[in-house]
Design a protein around this nucleic acid. Structure first.
Lengths: 252, 252
DNA sequence: TATCTTAGCGTAAATAATGCACTAAATATT
DNA sequence: AATATTTAGTGCATTATTTACGCTAAGATA
């Protein structure tokens, strides 16, 4: 139970991060490879990036460090979404792996899930590749190490809720984006089809989405205009409104 | 760092519970008294009910136990809403109190916040009084022990969001309630005024709120009719709907 | 019978959501 | 130069929801 470095590492608490990105088509998540030895044979699978916390750091800081390590300075403040504390959440085998990997000796690890959104551009892809991580399309993930599949599932449904609650989706798009990109992103996150005309109408009516006047270049079709999200204007709009609509959300 | 009972208690993790109730007028929360000795003098203040977790229990179970202890079997499954993990979240003085109170010896406790909703009736009030706890009106709370005020604040804003998202508010009302009670409850939780006519119209249109035919008795005014929330009908309605409204919520 | 108190109803106007089909602007192909 | 291909972008009519607002109804009490 007592590791010899327990003055530093808190051996019962870890942080796992679900880092979402959008490649223009579908929603992706950052995974790292893990090698376990089962019956003497080496087996590879994937896990979410994570780490144990130190005694003198908060979970938010710990999560921020993961984000920093994995994505450089492309940090969007990660958000805590749930703790996974089932004493049986990892098998005995996997616990051995954890203890070995982190140099600890515990028989239980409670983990805290964070998710964050990043702009998945060339530069980030190159960077994450250097960290030994890769971006996997969410629909394609059938299995992850430990209970990470469940952590991912929970992160996604939290994201689906949050994205409808506040304008965080923009963090996954370039500063200047087309309405079509935004629509595709919403479709990908929520897993629903969205009518383009109605979506445009809605978005363009929002006081905090502004046309830049710039257009796409070198595309083999009518170039789309770029828009930006105006933080200030959003904050202003946010204060102004209040209605009974809360009850409508019950029918989600 | 090592307590002699660390095979049982996980000395770095606790659970604190925010238990909300509604007395017909305002939103209340369950508090327990705490006695600390500062400079040799005994000082009393209030805190949220909480406990350390045991090594072999999940946080959900631990929270459920608090609920059970404090409210008997009047349990509505408590919901985890955030971890408070700032290494400085409790002062050195307060840490001493925690160590003494729980019989542990640690220099850091991370706590997990849960909130839950109960029906605040005579029977519950009597029960909680036996547990040495009391119900305090939220607006009246200016200070709580440790960082419990912040935990309470966070719980409340989570509740405000959740109550708009799913029909959990009914857990704070008797099985049979009047529309006016429901309205007052929403007002109290959200801290807003609600137009009675529009509220009624909205509520009565919902397919999962049914009139019972029964009315209030012994009231010195026109008796209101009692309604109930129909879980099944809600589940059915929930599946049926999907729209673009998600973006409107941005203007909250 | 009047008064007090809270329940409960209705309607018009404004705003938002939905469903649906065509035109516009660029590149690529012939 | 004409045509094809591809995605951007627009309009309108219908329906649903929200908002604002003032009066009547039913019981208890004096």
């Amino acid at each position: 139970m007592h590791s010899n470095i327990d003055k530093k590492i808190n051996s019962s608490l870890s942080v796992d991060s679900v880092i979402f990105g959008f490649d223009g088509k579908s929603l992706k998540v950052l995974l790292v490879e893990r090698t376990t030895s089962i019956n003497g044979r080496e087996v590879k699978d994937y896990k979410l990036p994570g780490r144990m916390i130190f005694e003198n750091e908060s979970l938010d800081i710990s999560a921020a460090k993961i984000f920093h390590t994995m994505t450089g300075d492309r940090i969007i403040s990660p958000k805590q979404f749930r703790i996974f504390s089932d004493p049986e959440r990892v098998s005995k085998e996997e616990l051995k792996w954890i203890n070995k990997f982190h140099g600890i000796n515990t028989d239980r690890v409670v983990t805290v899930g964070y998710y964050g959104l990043v702009k998945l551009n060339m530069s980030l892809i190159a960077y994450t590749r250097e960290q030994g991580a890769h971006w996997e399309q969410i629909d394609n993930i059938t299995h992850l190490a430990m209970d990470h599949k469940e952590i991912l599932r929970t992160a996604l449904s939290t994201l689906q809720r949050d994205v409808a609650q506040s304008p965080i989706a923009f963090h996954m798009l370039p500063k200047k984006f087309t309405i079509r990109q935004l629509q595709t992103l919403f479709s990908a996150i929520l897993g629903i089809e969205i009518d383009n005309r109605n979506f445009r109408k809605k978005i363009l009516n929002l006081p905090f989405i502004k046309a830049t006047g710039e257009k796409e270049k070198n595309v083999k079709h009518k170039p789309a205009e770029y828009y930006t999200f105006k933080e200030r204007a959003f904050k202003r709009a946010e204060k102004a409104k209040q209605n009974l609509r809360f009850i409508n959300n019950w029918s989600y």
